[in-house]
Amino acid sequence: MTEYKLVVVGAGGVGKSALTIQLIQNHFVDEYDPTIEDSYRKQVVIDGETCLLDILDTAGQEEYSAMRDQYMRTGEGFLCVFAINNTKSFEDIHHYREQIKRVKDSEDVPMVLVGNKCDLPSRTVDTKQAQDLARSYGIPFIETSAKTRQGVDDAFYTLVREIRKHKEKMSKDGKKKKKKSKTKCVIM
């Protein structure tokens, strides 16, 4: 069974824990209790493949930012979460993405942009803004509501699919490099 290491990042209060708990335990946590770091595991079937999701729910508070490099190193894919009623959390996505790329030393890291709290009427981040940002990053965008469960499975499952595509691409690139290195030079 394939294991996928997913990391949920975003500013404090955007609903990272609520999304994760909704996926794992099928219930909505409405009281806000700032996370330092929590880890969850769940076995699911995605596109006919049974897999184990190892999900790291991270601290959004700035005082825990020193811990970010460590979990970013171990993560295979990242859910970059903002709240649709919090423009600052949307603007912060850029910083999370840049930090992930720096730590992973790669421009090509599996990510999904997630606009959470889409059940709320007080939207300050337009869907088109988020779609445009995701398009500019070359990553999928999904709106979710941890409260109603809308888009929750889709967000995590899409990230797994992005990781699969990335692994497939990397193995193809690896095979191309191996083929090239088999060419021999004969000096007579």
Score class of each variant (00 low, 15 high):
residue 64 Y to W: 05
residue 10 G to E: 00
residue 33 D to W: 04
residue 14 V to P: 10
residue 39 S to G: 14
residue 22 Q to E: 11
residue 15 G to N: 00
residue 40 Y to L: 01
residue 34 P to L: 02
residue 30 D to S: 08
residue 23 L to H: 14
residue 40 Y to W: 03
residue 17 S to H: 00
residue 22 Q to G: 11
residue 17 S to M: 02
residue 35 T to P: 00
residue 22 Q to V: 05
residue 21 I to M: 09
residue 11 A to S: 10
residue 60 G to H: 03
residue 53 L to H: 05
residue 43 Q to K: 12
residue 26 N to P: 06
residue 20 T to N: 07
residue 42 K to I: 10
residue 64 Y to M: 05
residue 63 E to H: 06
residue 30 D to K: 10
residue 49 E to F: 08
residue 54 D to P: 14
residue 46 I to T: 11
residue 54 D to N: 15
residue 11 A to V: 13
residue 45 V to D: 12
residue 21 I to D: 04
residue 35 T to A: 00
residue 20 T to Y: 02
residue 43 Q to A: 11
residue 52 L to P: 14
residue 15 G to K: 03
residue 31 E to M: 06
residue 51 C to Y: 14
residue 9 V to K: 03
residue 22 Q to D: 15
residue 13 G to F: 12
residue 54 D to E: 15
residue 40 Y to N: 00
residue 45 V to F: 10
residue 28 F to I: 05
residue 20 T to H: 00
residue 64 Y to R: 05
residue 32 Y to F: 04
residue 46 I to Y: 12
residue 36 I to N: 00
residue 22 Q to P: 01
residue 61 Q to L: 11
residue 30 D to Y: 08
residue 48 G to W: 06
residue 41 R to S: 08
residue 16 K to W: 00
residue 42 K to E: 09
residue 57 D to K: 00
residue 22 Q to A: 08
residue 59 A to S: 14
residue 55 I to L: 14
residue 64 Y to E: 04
residue 16 K to F: 00
residue 38 D to L: 00
residue 38 D to T: 02
residue 36 I to T: 00
residue 51 C to G: 09
residue 16 K to P: 04
residue 33 D to H: 03
residue 28 F to N: 00
residue 36 I to F: 03
residue 52 L to G: 14
residue 49 E to V: 11
residue 57 D to L: 02
residue 6 L to F: 11
residue 17 S to Y: 00
residue 31 E to P: 04
residue 20 T to W: 00
residue 24 I to N: 07
residue 31 E to R: 03
residue 13 G to H: 13
residue 32 Y to L: 03
residue 47 D to L: 05
residue 28 F to Y: 11
residue 54 D to Q: 14
residue 43 Q to L: 07
residue 20 T to D: 05
residue 40 Y to E: 03
residue 31 E to G: 06
residue 53 L to T: 10
residue 58 T to F: 01
residue 27 H to S: 15
residue 20 T to G: 05
residue 39 S to I: 05
residue 15 G to W: 01
residue 49 E to D: 11
residue 42 K to N: 11
residue 38 D to V: 03
residue 37 E to P: 02
residue 10 G to K: 02
residue 37 E to K: 15
residue 13 G to T: 12
residue 63 E to P: 06
residue 64 Y to L: 05
residue 10 G to F: 03
residue 64 Y to A: 04
residue 8 V to H: 03
residue 50 T to G: 10
residue 47 D to V: 05
residue 25 Q to T: 15
residue 58 T to G: 05
residue 45 V to R: 13
residue 10 G to I: 01
residue 35 T to H: 00
residue 34 P to Q: 04
residue 63 E to C: 07
residue 13 G to Y: 12
residue 8 V to T: 07
residue 30 D to V: 09
residue 50 T to K: 10
residue 16 K to M: 05
residue 15 G to C: 00
residue 37 E to R: 15
residue 35 T to Q: 00
residue 3 E to T: 14
residue 19 L to R: 01
residue 4 Y to R: 13
residue 12 G to H: 08
residue 41 R to K: 14
residue 5 K to R: 13
residue 34 P to V: 04
residue 27 H to A: 15
residue 59 A to P: 04
residue 42 K to G: 05
residue 56 L to D: 10
residue 3 E to S: 14
residue 38 D to K: 01
residue 27 H to K: 14
residue 30 D to T: 09
residue 9 V to R: 04
residue 13 G to E: 14
residue 17 S to C: 04
residue 25 Q to E: 07
residue 5 K to W: 01
residue 27 H to G: 14
residue 5 K to I: 02
residue 22 Q to W: 08
residue 39 S to E: 08
residue 53 L to F: 12
residue 61 Q to R: 08
residue 12 G to D: 14
residue 36 I to C: 02
residue 41 R to A: 09
residue 50 T to Y: 09
residue 45 V to L: 12
residue 59 A to E: 02
residue 17 S to W: 00
residue 31 E to F: 14
residue 40 Y to R: 01
residue 18 A to Q: 15
residue 8 V to C: 08
residue 5 K to D: 08
residue 7 V to F: 06
residue 12 G to R: 05
residue 29 V to P: 08
residue 51 C to V: 14
residue 12 G to N: 08
residue 19 L to W: 05
residue 49 E to P: 09
residue 46 I to F: 12
residue 35 T to R: 00
residue 42 K to V: 10
residue 48 G to Y: 08
residue 42 K to R: 12
residue 18 A to L: 01
residue 28 F to L: 05
residue 6 L to W: 04
residue 51 C to P: 13
residue 57 D to A: 01
residue 52 L to T: 15
residue 27 H to M: 15
residue 46 I to M: 10
residue 11 A to N: 06
residue 33 D to M: 02
residue 11 A to R: 07
residue 29 V to Q: 08
residue 59 A to Q: 02
residue 3 E to D: 12
residue 57 D to H: 04
residue 62 E to P: 11
residue 42 K to C: 08
residue 60 G to W: 02
residue 19 L to C: 13
residue 39 S to Q: 08
residue 48 G to P: 09
residue 2 T to P: 13
residue 4 Y to S: 13
residue 39 S to K: 09
residue 58 T to I: 03
residue 56 L to S: 11
residue 52 L to K: 14
residue 5 K to C: 06
residue 58 T to L: 03
residue 4 Y to F: 14
residue 38 D to F: 02
residue 16 K to H: 01
residue 56 L to Y: 07
residue 36 I to P: 00
residue 15 G to L: 00
residue 8 V to P: 01
residue 47 D to G: 11
residue 22 Q to K: 13
residue 7 V to S: 07
residue 60 G to A: 03
residue 39 S to H: 09
residue 49 E to S: 11
residue 42 K to L: 09
residue 52 L to W: 13
residue 60 G to K: 02
residue 11 A to Y: 10
residue 22 Q to R: 11
residue 8 V to I: 09
residue 64 Y to N: 05
residue 6 L to V: 13
residue 57 D to R: 01
residue 53 L to A: 12
residue 14 V to L: 10
residue 36 I to H: 00
residue 33 D to I: 03
residue 32 Y to S: 04
residue 51 C to D: 10
residue 15 G to E: 00
residue 45 V to E: 12
residue 64 Y to D: 04
residue 49 E to N: 11
residue 33 D to R: 00
residue 28 F to Q: 00
residue 44 V to W: 09
residue 9 V to C: 13
residue 50 T to C: 10
residue 37 E to G: 15
residue 3 E to Q: 12
residue 60 G to F: 01
residue 50 T to A: 12
residue 24 I to D: 05
residue 18 A to G: 13
residue 41 R to Q: 13
residue 2 T to S: 14
residue 54 D to H: 14
residue 25 Q to W: 08
residue 51 C to F: 13
residue 30 D to E: 13
residue 2 T to W: 08
residue 7 V to Q: 07
residue 17 S to D: 00
residue 19 L to N: 14
residue 44 V to H: 11
residue 8 V to N: 01
residue 62 E to I: 07
residue 51 C to A: 09
residue 56 L to G: 07
residue 33 D to P: 00
residue 23 L to W: 12
residue 61 Q to I: 09
residue 23 L to S: 13
residue 47 D to H: 09
residue 37 E to Y: 11
residue 23 L to V: 10
residue 19 L to Y: 07
residue 61 Q to Y: 07
residue 42 K to M: 09
residue 36 I to M: 05
residue 31 E to Q: 06
residue 3 E to R: 13
residue 63 E to G: 05
residue 9 V to Y: 06
residue 10 G to D: 00
residue 51 C to T: 12
residue 36 I to A: 01
residue 58 T to K: 02
residue 61 Q to A: 14
residue 24 I to C: 06
residue 5 K to T: 07
residue 6 L to C: 10
residue 60 G to V: 02
residue 5 K to V: 04
residue 3 E to L: 09
residue 38 D to N: 04
residue 36 I to V: 04
residue 26 N to W: 07
residue 7 V to W: 10
residue 19 L to F: 12
residue 60 G to M: 02
residue 52 L to S: 15
residue 24 I to L: 15
residue 40 Y to F: 03
residue 61 Q to H: 12
residue 32 Y to N: 05
residue 44 V to D: 13
residue 3 E to A: 14
residue 4 Y to C: 12
residue 53 L to C: 14
residue 60 G to R: 02
residue 52 L to M: 14
residue 13 G to K: 11
residue 42 K to T: 09
residue 60 G to I: 02
residue 40 Y to S: 01
residue 6 L to I: 13
residue 26 N to C: 08
residue 31 E to K: 04
residue 5 K to L: 02
residue 59 A to N: 04
residue 22 Q to Y: 04
residue 29 V to C: 08
residue 17 S to L: 00
residue 47 D to S: 10
residue 27 H to I: 15
residue 55 I to W: 04
residue 14 V to C: 12
residue 50 T to Q: 11
residue 23 L to F: 13
residue 14 V to I: 13
residue 16 K to I: 01
residue 44 V to A: 13
residue 5 K to A: 05
residue 12 G to E: 15
residue 26 N to E: 13
residue 39 S to N: 12
residue 46 I to G: 08
residue 51 C to R: 10
residue 18 A to M: 12
residue 41 R to V: 09
residue 43 Q to V: 09
residue 57 D to W: 01
residue 3 E to W: 07
residue 9 V to N: 06
residue 59 A to D: 02
residue 27 H to E: 14
residue 34 P to I: 03
residue 14 V to D: 09
residue 25 Q to L: 15
residue 14 V to M: 10
residue 36 I to E: 00
residue 51 C to N: 12
residue 60 G to P: 03
residue 59 A to T: 08
residue 58 T to A: 07
residue 59 A to R: 01
residue 12 G to K: 07
residue 24 I to M: 15
residue 19 L to I: 12
residue 47 D to A: 10
residue 20 T to P: 03
residue 30 D to C: 10
residue 55 I to Q: 04
residue 34 P to E: 05
residue 21 I to T: 08
residue 25 Q to M: 15
residue 4 Y to K: 15
residue 2 T to K: 14
residue 29 V to R: 02
residue 24 I to T: 06
residue 15 G to A: 02
residue 61 Q to V: 09
residue 50 T to S: 11
residue 29 V to Y: 15
residue 9 V to D: 06
residue 46 I to K: 09
residue 37 E to S: 15
residue 16 K to L: 01
residue 62 E to K: 07
residue 12 G to L: 07
residue 34 P to K: 02
residue 12 G to Y: 09
residue 54 D to M: 07
residue 41 R to I: 09
residue 14 V to R: 05
residue 32 Y to W: 09
residue 43 Q to F: 07
residue 28 F to W: 12
residue 47 D to K: 10
residue 41 R to D: 04
residue 24 I to H: 14
residue 21 I to G: 07
residue 57 D to N: 02
residue 45 V to T: 13
residue 49 E to L: 06
